[in-house]
């Protein structure tokens, strides 16, 4: 029995068209063309309890809109959505107590007060018992290593520290479903990793179902087995992340370094497509299945090979390729 079920979901927004310029602005006071933008079109998927699913797609693809529908902020234009057996849009208390939404670009913590005050407010909002509150707070603040900043006003915290506090605030009521909208946006690599590790550990322990959106492939590849790729409001892939990479990453790259004598362009061109060339280092793109044999033949040739590496194509490249396909 899936915990999240979305069937043929569509969401359209109203907006007005206005040509640039002062005159057009004045004109638009009296006459505006009302338009509908379809942010999500006929999207269907279902998610089982305990899964972490990565939601991928370029800006404006409809990821956040989908999360907003799932959390009951937006009313679906058409289609059926059920989470934990609830219709999110009804905004029932029983549902609200079982999920949380974290948006990396927004903050729910009180800016001028220490994070602890916001935690206590959430404790009261979600009616968490004193004991549960103390236990969960202790556990999460230890995991995230933020015990020493709980009584510092939030506005004095770094972005990374603040995000950690946001996560704690969202998880105090132990939600069964968690929507994370770009939780690592703007963070440095260390902070990104901290947040990622925390989410991983938290999910392993509490079996919380998580939908995560991120533009950082590292987040997705570390956390999500399954990804749903959405572009221009439509799902273009739903399945295993590794398989996706295999399917789209049709090539591998060979990075070959040469000794002091170096090499000529013509000598290496025959092994595959030259992505980068200088006499001492070449990057050669070859088909996946030919990667091994190409490497072997480079090694057995009389070129002064010093070292050879076989690399997977960068996941970012794969995703870029998929996003671009969607555009056509």
């Amino acid at each position: 029995m899936p915990i999240i079920e979305v069937k043929n979901l569509s969401k359209a927004y109203e907006y007005y068209k206005k040509a640039p310029g002062l005159w057009m602005t004045i004109k638009s006071i009296f006459w505006r063309e009302k338009l509908l933008a379809e942010a999500v079109k006929d999207v269907s998927f279902s998610i089982e309890e305990g899964e972490i699913v990565g939601f991928l797609g370029p800006n404006g693809a409809g990821k956040t809109t989908t999360l907003k529908v799932l959390s009951g902020i937006l009313y679906p234009t058409s289609g059926a959505v059920r989470v934990l057996g609830f219709d999110p849009y009804k905004r029932q208390k029983e549902y609200q107590k079982q999920f949380a939404l974290v948006m990396g670009q927004k903050n729910q913590l009180w800016w001028e007060l220490p994070a602890m005050e916001s935690f206590i407010l959430n404790k009261e909002i979600y009616e968490v018992s004193d004991q549960d509150f103390a236990e969960r707070l202790e556990e999460m603040t230890t995991l995230l290593d933020i015990k020493n900043i709980l009584d510092v006003p939030v506005r004095k915290l770094s972005l990374g520290q603040r995000m950690k506090c946001e996560l704690v605030a969202a998880l105090l009521h132990s939600p069964r479903v968690l929507f994370l909208d770009e939780p690592t946006i703007g963070l440095d690599v260390v902070a990104q990793k901290n947040i990622r590790d925390f989410i991983k550990k938290y999910n392993a322990k509490s079996k919380t179902t998580i939908i995560l959106t991120s533009h950082y492939m590292e987040d997705i590849s570390q956390l999500c087995q399954r990804v749903i790729i959405i572009n221009l409001g439509k799902i273009i892939y739903d399945g295993d992340f590794k398989e996706l990479v295999n399917r789209y990453a049709t090539h591998k790259t060979l990075v070959v370094t040469f000794n002091d004598r170096g090499t000529q362009r013509t000598e290496v061109e025959s092994f595959g497509e030259l992505v980068e060339y200088n006499p001492h280092r070449c990057v050669i793109k070859v088909l996946r299945e030919q990667a091994k044999s190409a490497a072997a033949s480079i090694l057995s040739s009389n070129l002064p090979v010093d070292d050879i590496l076989i690399n997977e194509i960068d996941v970012d490249d794969v995703i870029r390729q998929i996003f671009n396909q969607g555009k056509r």
Binding site: I73, R91, Q96, F99, A100, L101, K106, Y126, E127
Partner: peptide, 12 residues
């Protein structure tokens, strides 16, 4: 600023 959304997802 969209802060109202916060109150649509929480039991408050």
């Amino acid at each position: 600023e969209g802060k109202v959304s916060e109150f649509l997802v929480k039991p408050i």
